[in-house]
């Protein structure tokens, strides 16, 4: 795989690539994440330095999409069942590797309770159902945020050494601090709800249904009790579900950058107003209820 790029891990010194013999099931990672999160919470050790990210890069080779699961994913997010993998489904394939990195003892932030702030995927060409995918994951850019510390989880996907897909997921761990750094709240320009072009009616079991096709069984999406424990009135929709649905509605050009910013969670069941606008081969989509939920853009070079 490609040489490591500059980032937090490199700043710490040498980087090694550790190849996983098999991708750990997400359920295992989530259990480990739960334990680690509890330990972290008990330790009250919330001060970090920018060099605290693990230097390791995790790799998994020869991942393949399952056609039945792919179809279920495509239908759930509103895409037509195509042999070109939706960019969000490539994220689903890479996600267990990202999670495996986040539950390692040397990863400084707790998996559970982290907030997905933004997600950017750059896809160079369509990825096909019959292709074997190599995934390499690392963490970078530990950064101060006004509510805690954010981190980027980067997944790079290649087919026979050809880079095809790169995803950057930015997560926030609330209540953490970065030594010597602080961040002011970035004021976003006032957002006024525009005239909608459509509506999303999101059923109560959407979290469980997306968990079934994505493998992301984070309990804030599947259990009302767990959602309440994390401060939500009921379960909330997966950010990547909303971003994937937006991508399906805008459409995927051959090569593009898909950027999603998650501003406020979508509580289930719920209805969100939506405005979509085409821009060249891509487009933008906003979804809102009482608050602005998310902004998604697809830009083609």
């Amino acid at each position: 795989m490609s040489a490591p790029e500059a980032g937090g891990a490199d700043a710490a010194g040498s980087t090694l690539v550790e190849e996983l013999a098999e991708v750990p099931p997400l359920s295992t990672s989530l259990r480990r994440g739960l334990v680690a999160s509890t330990v972290a919470a008990v330790r009250h050790d919330r001060g970090l330095t920018p060099f605290d990210l693990p230097a390791v890069r995790l790799a998994a080779r020869g991942l393949a999409a399952d056609a039945v699961r792919l179809t279920a994913y495509e239908h759930l997010v509103g895409a037509t069942a195509s042999d070109d993998l939706p960019a969000g489904f490539v994220h689903v394939l890479a996600f267990p590797v990202m999670t495996a990195l986040m539950v390692r003892p040397e990863f400084p932030l707790p998996l559970l309770g982290m907030v997905h702030l933004a997600n950017t995927v750059t896809q160079r060409r369509p990825v096909r159902l019959d292709e074997a995918l190599d995934v390499e994951v690392h963490a970078e850019r530990l950064a101060a945020h006004h509510r805690g510390v954010s981190v980027d989880l980067v997944a790079e996907v290649s087919v026979a050494d050809e880079p095809v897909w790169r995803g950057v997921s930015t997560y926030l761990a609330k209540g953490y601090a970065l030594a010597g750094e602080s961040a002011e709240r970035v004021e976003r320009p006032d957002w006024r709800a525009p005239t909608p072009t459509g509506a999303w009616r999101l059923p109560a079991d959407l979290g469980r249904r997306y968990a079934a096709v994505s493998g992301d069984h984070n309990p804030i999406h599947t259990s009302t009790l767990a959602a309440k424990a994390f401060g939500f009135p009921r379960t909330i929709a997966h950010g990547m579900y909303t971003a994937a649905r937006a991508l399906a509605e805008i459409g995927e050009p051959d090569a593009f950058t898909w950027h999603a910013e998650f501003f406020a969670p979508v509580v289930l069941p719920g209805t969100a107003s939506v405005r979509i606008a085409k821009e060249g081969n891509g487009g933008v989509l906003d979804a809102w209820g009482k608050r602005h939920h998310l902004h998604v853009s697809v830009t083609a070079p």
Binding site: T195, P196, T197, G198, A199, R201, E249, V274
Partner: peptide
């Protein structure tokens, strides 16, 4: 593709 009923769609045009 939009989740809006025909009446809700016409309401957008009516307003426009």
């Amino acid at each position: 593709r939009t989740g809006l009923s025909m009446g809700e769609h016409q309401a957008l045009t009516t307003a426009e």
